[in-house]
Simulated scan of single mutants.
Amino acid sequence: MVDQTLHHTDACVIGGGPVGLFTVFQCGMVRIKCHVVDVLDALGGQCAALYPEKPIYDIPAHPSILAGDLIGQLEQQAAPFNPVYHLSQQVVGLTRQDNGRWLVETDKGTQIDCAVVIIAAGAGAFGPNRPPLDGLAHYEGKSVFYFVKSREAFRGKRVVIAGGGDSAVDWAVSLSEVAASVAVIHRRPKFRCAPESAARLQDLASQGKIDLVVPYQLSALEGDTASGQLNTVRVADLDGGLRDLPADILLPFFGLATSLGPISSWGLGMDKSHITIDQGTSATNVEGIFAAGDVCTYPGKLKLILTGFAEAAQAAHHAYPFVYKGEHLHFEHSTSIGVPA
Rank of each mutant, 00 (worst) to 15 (best):
H274W: 13
V214L: 11
L212G: 10
K209I: 10
L230E: 02
D211H: 14
V235M: 02
R192I: 00
G223R: 03
L268Q: 00
T225N: 12
A220N: 12
N285S: 04
L204A: 11
V235I: 05
L256H: 04
T258G: 12
Q217T: 14
V235W: 01
L250Y: 01
A247C: 07
T232E: 01
A172P: 03
L201S: 05
G208T: 08
R200E: 14
G269S: 15
G223M: 04
S181L: 05
S273P: 09
T281S: 11
P195Q: 10
L242N: 10
H186C: 03
P215E: 05
S176G: 11
K190G: 05
D237V: 01
L218W: 07
P215S: 07
A180R: 15
Y216R: 13
L218V: 02
Q202A: 15
Q202I: 12
P246G: 06
G208D: 10
A236R: 14
K209G: 14
L212K: 08
A247E: 03
L175N: 03
T258Q: 14
I277V: 11
S181V: 04
V233E: 02
H186E: 06
L218R: 06
S264L: 04
D224V: 05
A183T: 01
A198Y: 06
N285M: 00
N231S: 13
I249G: 07
V235D: 00
S181Q: 10
G223K: 04
F254Q: 03
A194P: 04
A220M: 09
D203F: 15
